[in-house]
Structure formats: structure tokens, C-alpha cells
Simulated scan of single mutants.
Amino acid sequence: MLYWILKNLFLAPYLNATFRPWVSGIENVPATGAVILASNHVSVVDSLFLPLMLKRKVTFLAKSDYFTGKGIKGWAIRSFLNGVGQLSIDRSGGKASEASLDTGVEVLRGGGVLGIYPEGTRSPTGKLYRGRTGVARMILEAKVPVVPVAMFDTDKAMPIGSVIPKVRRVGIVIGEPLDFSRFEGMEGDRFVLRSITDEIMVEIARLSGQEYVDVYGSTLRNRARAAQAA
């Protein structure tokens, strides 16, 4: 109920009137049944505009840092994220990351729509970076199709580091579903997981027109931070 109220009474009227989002390929999202939406990630507001354009509720896996803020501000952000269907996940690796992926699989086994950013982080440069294989594992474990998505100009509407959004028209292109059922039962094979993930990233790159870089975006970001600290 809270999701419906936030989306239809508050977010939708404001975002539609201000940013006039356009969408292509919306018919590629199944009307029923579990599915993964795998998108590029260029702005924090990607998780607002994609659900806005769909009738179905989209649950996103969001990094746990967003849910741990202190005071009234932290409570407000946490309440908002929970209200719009975002789930806290731990990206620290090991068992914590495994548990986070299990959370995504539970959403899918319940017949839901799961939104995920295979890159694992926002692009630090606007290019498309190597995908994490967690998306492939969830596809095989939950036995669901994946729909590639490309976001356009959300990074111009809300650049990294900005607090107040800029009025800019944004867009979404939704590709045709990808079926990896031929790999059923092979979720433990890391080479299969990498192959599936790379195929998804190639399709996202085709839809978005972004230059693909076969390096993790987080690796590039960490290198930049290390260079600044040196």
C-alpha cells in the first residue's frame, strides 16, 4: 500500500511533470511472473524512473549503506527506500553477499520483478563496466528470464555528488527478454556464470550505446580514491 501511495500520488506526478520521461520497449516486460530487469547504472535516480514507467512493482537490491544513516535524515531515507520497494544488501563479499543474492532469489520465487545493476555500482565515467556474476546465479537458481534495460540522461538529471536534481528529460529503452534455460543446473559453474553475465552486458551496451570496459567499475573507483589519497 505504501509503495502504491508513494509511486502514484507523489513520485509519478512530480517526475512525469518535471522530467517528462520516455520509454521504449515497455511491452518486453512480462505482465505476470518472475523476471529480472538488468540495467546500466549511471545515476542514483535510476531506481526511481524505471519503476515509474512500469505497472508492476519493481524491487531493487540497494547497498546497505543507504539504510544505516543516523538521526531523522537517516530514518527518512530508510523509510523512503523501504516504501519504494528497495531491499538492503551487503556487498562486502563472502557469506554476506551470498545472503544478499538469496534475498533476490526469494523475490523471484515469489513471482516478483527484481531490478538489479550488474555492474554493482554507478558508473564513475558514464561508460559501461564489467558485470558481477550474481545476476547470472539468480537467473539460474530462480529459473527466470532477464530483460536488459538502458537508462538515458539520468546522470545529467542527477550527476554523482549532486544534491538537487537538474531538470532534464530522461529515457529508458527496454530490450527483449533473454533466456538462459539452456544452462539450467549449472549455477555452480563460474565459467557459465561469467558467460551469461557477459552476454547480458553486451546487450545492455547495444541498447545504451555506451562504450564497454572489461574492468569492474568499483575497481576503477578505488584506484581513483587511492590516487587522490596518495
Rank of each mutant, 00 (worst) to 15 (best):
K7S: 07
K7C: 04
N8P: 05
N8M: 06
N8A: 00
N8I: 06
N8R: 11
L9C: 14
L9Q: 08
L9K: 09
L9Y: 12
L9H: 08
F10Y: 14
F10A: 14
F10R: 10
L11Q: 10
L11Y: 10
A12R: 15
A12C: 10
A12W: 12
P13L: 06
P13E: 09
Y14Q: 12
Y14I: 15
Y14A: 14
L15T: 07
L15Q: 09
N16K: 14
N16Q: 11
N16S: 11
N16Y: 09
N16D: 11
N16M: 10
A17N: 11
A17C: 14
T18K: 13
T18P: 06
T18M: 13
F19Q: 07
F19K: 08
F19Y: 15
F19A: 08
F19L: 08
F19N: 08
P21D: 01
P21G: 07
W22E: 12
S24M: 13
S24A: 14
S24F: 11
S24I: 14
G25F: 00
G25E: 04
G25R: 05
G25S: 03
I26G: 01
I26S: 13
E27F: 08
E27P: 02
E27A: 06
E27Q: 13
E27I: 01
N28W: 06
N28G: 01
N28C: 00
V29L: 03
V29K: 00
V29D: 01
P30D: 05
P30M: 04
A31K: 15
A31R: 14
A31E: 15
A31H: 13
A31V: 11
T32S: 13
G33P: 05
G33S: 07
A34Y: 06
A34F: 08
A34V: 02
A34W: 04
V35L: 04
V35R: 01
V35P: 02
V35A: 11
V35K: 01
I36Y: 04
L37M: 05
L37W: 01
L37C: 05
L37D: 03
L37H: 03
L37Y: 03
L37E: 02
L37V: 04
A38S: 02
A38T: 02
A38H: 02
S39M: 13
S39V: 07
S39W: 11
N40T: 05
N40I: 01
N40Q: 04
N40W: 00
H41L: 03
H41S: 07
S43Y: 12
V44G: 02
V44R: 06
V44S: 13
